[in-house]
Each structure stands twice: as structure tokens, then as C-alpha cells.
Amino acid sequence: MQGKWIEVKVITTSEAVEPISGIFYGLDVKGVAIEDPNDIASREQGPLSWDFADSNIFEYGDKAAVVKGYFSQEEDIEKIIKYIEDKIKELKGLGVNVGDGKVIHMAVFEEDWATSWKKYYKTLKLGKRIVIKPTWEDYDKKDDELIIELDPGMAFGTGTHETTMMCVELLEKYVDGDDVVFDIGTGSGILAITASKLGAKKVVGVDLDEVAVDAAKENVNFNNLDNVEIKCGNLVEVVEGKADIIVANIIADVIVHLTKIVKPFMKNESLFISSGIINDRKEDVLKALEDANFSILEIREMGDWVAIVSKIK
């Protein structure tokens, strides 16, 4: 069944994809799709049933990323566009590189795009043992694999993005059975669930986005976990206690801010795993960590993205 929708797109950068997606999620959006030349898999995660081979991802330049939101015809589109433009200005004020930041809209026809994106999302193995399996797919477990049942819905985190891949690999390397893990900006809950599957004693996932919190809670239930708690809000407002590992797969600017406030939630030997850092912002994050008296233990790079493991000196 086909319907007519209003497509609103923002021409931006890889760095700003997540916060701009968050702007859409704050509205009565019917779906969000992402085209990012630095994350080719993102073209296969959107909610639309287009032919990706015919989609010109480089229409706005080979470094531009595009975030698209879909709204019903009954919505006040001009009001929505004004809201998005104002929020983009706020991001610029926070130092986020939004690139062009241009907002465009047009009417489109799509066929059941709210669910058809699922055909592009397949079972994926990360690291040595972690298997991310869509809830609607069958998979035969092999050897010591750890299966994570996931339906990301409209939340960030399917496992296909390089930043998520690196975080999963680092959790696999560092988590042990006595650890308490905090996942900041949990999104779909993929990293919180991974930490639990790897044997963490307790996991707390936090996100400001209510849509993400609902998705994460559902995914925790899909995996029948009783040691993962998902909370809506800011780390400093909703989380108590100290963690052995804090993982934050967000954006560089938020990580820079976290370096100033995260220590009260860390034990003396705690690890801070940060990712979502575009290569161009690597030195900014390293400097912020060093200024906050963190020592750098490990730096990983994948594509145009960076993950950093640090601890308090």
C-alpha cells in the first residue's frame, strides 16, 4: 500500500548525523533514514524501500551526509522546518560541525517504508564472539558465540556502524564477570546488552531520547536479561554509584564534555571507552582527556572513525 509523505532532509556531515537524527526524533516523525559516505552500511538501515543501487549518495558532495525524516501531509511542514533550522543553529553554537546544514523538503511516495528497511538488516558477527541477530531472523549458534537479539527500531545502534563495531570489540576485550558497566547514550541498547552477555555483573544504559530508551528496554527484554537497567535522562541526574567501565558512543563534543563530569562515576582503575569520534576531532578529544588527567591506553581507528580507551591517572 502506497501513501504520500513529506520528506525533510538535512545536508550535513558524518559528525552531525546522530544529533541531527535526534532533532527528527524529537518531532512526530514517521521514520528516519541516513545516507553517509563514511558509513556505507547506513544506506541499508533506513526505513525506505528504495533501490540503493540507484540512490546517488554523493549528490551533495562526497563528504556530505544526509539525514531524512518523513512526515504525514497533515503536519505543519513549515513549522517543522523552522524548528529543525533553529535546532541546527543550536548545534552550531555548541561547536558541532553541521556542514552545509541546509534543510530541503519534498513530497514522496513510499510502500510500507515503516518496516521494509528490515530486509536490509542482516545477522552480523562482531569481534570474536558477538553475533548481532535481528529478532525476525533465524540463526544457528556456533561454538561459544554470544547471540544478541536486536530490533533497533528508530534508535541508533544496529552494529553496522564502525563506531559501534569498535565499542563491541573493546568491550569484548575488557569486560569481566565482576564489572559494573555504564553505557552513556545507549541508543538501541546494543552496547549495554553486549556488556551483559560478556558477563558484566551489572549494566546501566542511559539516553536522553525517550524513543531510544523504549527501544533499548524492548531489546533488553528480547534477550531475557535481568542485570541491565535502562534509564532516561542525563548521566549525572539518573545514575548512582561507580562503574568499572564507562562506554560512550556519542559524538566528539559530548565526549569532551564528559571528560569534565564523568570521574565521580569511575573507580580508581575504571576504564572510559569513548567513540563516535570523527577523525578530524581525534586530537580535540585526546587533548580533553589529557587535560582532565586521563591516561590513554588504546586508540583504534576504523574508516573515518576513532575509539579511545582511557583511565584516570
Rank of each mutant, 00 (worst) to 15 (best):
Q2R: 15
Q2W: 15
G3V: 07
W5E: 11
K9H: 09
I11S: 10
T12P: 14
T13C: 06
T13H: 02
A16I: 10
E18Q: 03
P19A: 02
I20W: 08
I20T: 06
S21I: 01
I23M: 11
Y25P: 02
V29R: 03
K30E: 11
G31L: 08
I34S: 06
E35Y: 13
G46V: 01
L48G: 09
L48A: 00
W50I: 14
D51V: 04
D51S: 04
F52N: 14
A53E: 15
F58G: 08
E59D: 10
Y60F: 15
K63F: 07
A65L: 07
V66F: 09
K68N: 12
S72P: 02
Q73S: 13
Q73N: 04
Q73L: 15
E75A: 11
K79S: 15
I81G: 07
Y83I: 08
D86H: 03
E90Q: 13
L91I: 11
G95S: 09
G101M: 06
V103C: 11
V103N: 10
F109M: 03
F109S: 14
D112M: 12
Y120A: 03
Y120G: 05
L126T: 13
K128E: 14
R129P: 00
R129G: 00
V131E: 09
K133A: 10
P134F: 05
K142R: 15
K142N: 06
I148A: 11
D151P: 00
G153N: 05
A155C: 03
G159E: 10
G159Y: 00
E162W: 02
T163Q: 10
M166R: 08
C167W: 04
E169H: 07
E169N: 11
L170Y: 03
L170H: 02
L170T: 04
L171C: 06
L171W: 09
K173I: 03
Y174H: 14
D176Q: 12
G177D: 14
G177M: 08
D179R: 00
D179E: 13
I184Q: 09
G187D: 01
S188E: 03
G189S: 04
I193F: 06
A195K: 12
S196D: 11
G199E: 01
G199Y: 06
G199F: 01
V203S: 12
V204Y: 11
V204L: 00
V206A: 05
V206S: 03
D207Y: 05
L208H: 07
D209K: 02
E210H: 09
V211F: 00
K217T: 06
E218F: 07
N219T: 02
F222W: 12
E229Y: 00
K231W: 08
G233I: 12
L235N: 01
L235Y: 02
V239M: 05
K242Q: 15
A243D: 13
D244C: 09
N249M: 01
A252T: 03
V254F: 02
I255A: 08
V256C: 13
K263H: 10
P264A: 00
F265R: 09
N268I: 00
I278W: 09
N279T: 06
R281W: 02
E283T: 01
L286P: 09
L286S: 10
S295A: 10
I299Q: 12
R300A: 00
R300E: 04
V306L: 14
V306K: 01
S310M: 09
